[in-house]
Design a protein around this nucleic acid. Structure first.
Length: 152
DNA sequence: GCCAACGTTGGC
DNA sequence: GCCAACGTTGGC
């Protein structure tokens, strides 16, 4: 059992958007970074905990609790010429990009960056590191517990 | 819109 | 394999 933080731009796919879907579950399309892909491929398992994070928006922060709801499988958008995630270099027999399904368990209040930065014990949370751009990052159990505590 | 950080690309 | 140029991310 591992824990993760997964970023989504709310203009693209917000926590409310996911809650409106059947089973509150969304295929996490569009990861085009090898490190993030490798986390899904090598680190994730069904039922892992996920902090749902809104980025590139007015109030960036954790907005929901979710779970990994499927094993990883090829991201279909890489083969879709009409998708902005299309990757002409990826072959069906050897898919380059993977995804997992993510199920939102509950929306939380917005735990914004200032509050996260101010929380004792969260200093090493990867998403708080300067210059961090990874859309999927591992979360240590102690950090997970602290976030649960902050959310009450 | 700015800009720091960092990933990717491609010439050599 | 090096590294400059370029593109993207994402907070502010």
């Amino acid at each position: 059992m591992n824990y993760w933080l997964m970023k989504s731009e709310p203009a693209e796919c917000s926590v409310d958007d996911v809650l409106a879907l059947p089973n509150a579950t969304v295929p996490w399309v569009g990861v085009r970074n090898y490190q993030a892909r490798n986390f899904m491929r090598d680190g994730m398992g069904v039922d892992d905990g996920v902090l749902f994070y809104h980025s590139s928006c007015a109030e960036p922060g954790i907005v929901g609790l979710a779970r990994v709801a499927s094993p990883c499988y090829p991201d279909p958008t890489q083969f879709d010429k009409k998708s902005k995630y299309y990757d002409p270099a990826s072959k069906r027999a050897e898919a380059r990009w993977l995804l997992v399904d993510v199920q939102v368990l509950r929306k939380t209040r917005t735990l914004g960056l200032p509050e996260l930065r101010a929380a004792p014990g969260l200093e090493d949370l990867i998403v708080l590191r300067k210059g961090n751009r990874l859309s999927i990052t591992p979360v240590e159990p102690k950090h997970w517990r602290l976030v649960q505590k902050l959310l009450g």
